[in-house]
Design a protein around this nucleic acid. Structure first.
Lengths: 146, 146
DNA sequence: TCCGAATCGTTGGCGCAGCCAACAAGTGGG
DNA sequence: CCCACTTGTTGGCTGCGCCAACGATTCGGA
């Protein structure tokens, strides 16, 4: 009879800690975005457009890790709101070129602020140094996983 | 009046970093669990049972942050697999008492290992000290948010 | 003691997220 | 010229988190 089921449980607990924290962050972000009638996909797409410029829908999907079918729906929604424009590519009749409008840029800035507030709320218990370290570590993880 | 839109974008980028990382972690955990025909709810429930002992379904939900309706479905699935037992509470005809079986405990141990491997894969680029710091920081966040 | 409030399990439903398959139209290389 | 590939689109599936409603039961206060 071992005195240590503990190490095993701790590993599990640590994994679960990740699950709990991610779920929490997920919920905070979703709430914040939902309060301004937006969703994660909206931010993904607008941010990709803002950072890298106009692109075809397939390229947009690759930039933000969205499936092509989800890009279709998201562009539909954003276009309905006047945040992006979809027009055929004259040089390749298969493609649409998606452009962000000034109104879309303004909306993106708004979402930036909203997400910043959500982040502040989530990381409230951490010191500035701890936040910086957390961001650094998360960046390392993301970079490593391509 | 700031000279830089940059700080604003950085705040958004940092928020999004969280989103990216959480999505990544979420996916890794789901894949790992899916490979052994399990889901997050299964682990939540089994872990709660293992740690705190038999409980009513409502209590189980409160322990693990699951909705009552989701507890019903999850207990159904776990009971079908022989991992838990559901029986009426003789002292309160509203309640069911859910118990984890030996087979269920073994399954939980298996899930612990699987989640541990997923965590190792996720945190591969980090040093031992960085992992420890990350766990500490995440714990602080979770504790602060109840 | 009786009645209203609260709790419990269950059913059914909603929206978001991530993914996959299939299709027609179009493009490009051998 | 043909074949392989890409693109946009439609439709569908699972998981997750949540909410509303219901009948049955229990509990607390008048």
């Amino acid at each position: 009879m071992e005195t240590s089921g503990a190490p095993l449980r701790l590993r599990g607990a640590a994994s679960w800690l990740l699950g709990q924290a991610t779920t929490h962050a997920h919920r905070l972000v979703s709430e914040a975005l939902g309060a301004v009638d937006a969703r994660r996909y909206h931010y993904s797409l607008l941010a990709a457009l803002d950072e890298f410029g106009p692109a075809s829908q397939a390229d947009l999907g690759r930039r933000g890790g969205l499936d092509r079918s989800d890009v279709v729906a998201t562009v539909n929604e954003l276009a309905d709101k006047g945040f992006v424009e979809r027009r055929p590519d004259p040089g390749d009749k298969r493609r649409n070129i998606v452009t962000v409008t000034p109104s879309g840029v303004a909306h993106l800035r708004h979402l930036d602020r909203v997400l910043g507030q959500a982040q502040d709320a989530l990381l409230a218990p951490l010191s500035a140094a701890e936040r910086e370290e957390l961001v650094r570590v998360l960046n390392a993880v993301l970079e490593h996983h391509g």
